[in-house]
């Protein structure tokens, strides 16, 4: 551009310079403007020289990126159509009629998982997972035999072998408490061995060695949490709070460990641990007030 024309006519010998010009116009002394690129990334570099206010020579390098916004690859017919006059309701359209506008919001293609991460088992193809999703997405762990993902506690085939239920005969087979007929209701505390399965104990199962995990990312599901906490020891329950309306995680959950020491180690290790761009907060869960 300008660089090409500069060297020719304006190249004067310094001896021929008129001293009276003062410091006003020495631009022709400057090296010509150099434009490099644009290279394959569209980066264009322009090097210019000028004098600043104090008369110092300054080199100015401007780097710009050139980007083709629209791929103009219209066919001849499409170009013809471009010139078609408006018709129908569009005729009366003045420029002020804002039928078409560009969204003020930047819309991105929201990816369900971070690019590059490997696919998890949440692809929802298996029936078991789909069923688990319907049942409030509780991870399927049998409390009787400890098998994971195979069956629910109530459907356990090893129910009869499990030690906890040994002294609990099925209600139909015999009188569960002295003096009660078959049709009368027996509170759970009075059944079988009486005090060995009280309501408090049942609740404690949920409260025991319970660890509260907060500041979870929205995408964290129970399997992810299990994956994270399994390394510290056997886990009896994983729960992630889910918004009832939207099905989106509310950002906290609970993990119950079988052993207290494991829970302690998990808290020590994972509190402040970075998980999915967020810093986890892991602490003992406070028991429910009631």
């Amino acid at each position: 551009m300008a660089a090409a024309t500069l060297p020719g006519p304006t190249k004067l010998r310094w001896g021929e310079l008129d001293e009276d010009d003062g410091g006003d116009d020495f631009d022709f002394l400057l090296p010509p403007r150099v434009v490099e690129g644009p290279d394959e990334n569209g980066v264009k570099r322009t090097v210019e020289y000028r004098f600043d206010d104090e008369g110092n020579k300054v080199k100015v390098t401007t780097t710009t990126r050139v980007r083709k916004l629209a791929r103009a690859r219209l066919s001849k017919r499409a170009l013809e159509r471009r010139a078609w006059p408006k018709f129908g309701d569009a005729v009366r359209e003045d420029v002020g009629a804002r039928l078409t506008m560009v969204s003020t919001e930047e819309i991105v293609l929201e990816r369900p998982r971070a690019p590059g991460s490997k696919q998890e088992e949440t692809s929802m193809t298996g029936d078991a997972l789909a069923a688990a999703g319907k049942a409030g997405a509780v991870l399927m762990v049998c409390r009787t035999c400890g098998r994971k993902g195979d069956h629910w506690t109530s459907k356990c085939p090893y129910k009869d072998l499990a030690p906890q239920t040994d002294n609990l005969p099925p209600p139909e087979l015999g009188p569960s408490a002295p003096g009660t007929g078959k049709s009368t209701y027996v509170p759970p505390g009075m059944r079988g061995g009486g005090g060995d399965r009280t309501g408090t104990e049942m609740r404690r199962r949920n409260d025991e060695n319970s660890v509260r995990v907060t500041n979870l990312s929205e995408d964290t599901r129970e399997p992810d949490l299990l994956e994270l906490f399994r390394t510290f020891g056997p886990v009896s329950r994983v729960y992630v709070a889910v918004d009832q309306k939207t099905g989106v995680s509310r950002g906290f959950g609970f993990v119950n460990f079988v052993h207290k020491e494991d829970a302690e180690r998990a808290i020590n290790k994972l509190n402040g641990y970075g998980y999915d761009n967020l810093i986890l907060r892991v602490e003992w869960a406070t028991p429910r007030p009631n």
Partner: peptide
């Protein structure tokens, strides 16, 4: 009741079919 045709590049309305 009016189908409409638009330019697909900039979204300008070309016309309607009444």
């Amino acid at each position: 009741h009016t189908p409409t045709v638009w330019f697909a590049d900039n979204g300008e309305r070309l016309g309607t079919y009444r």
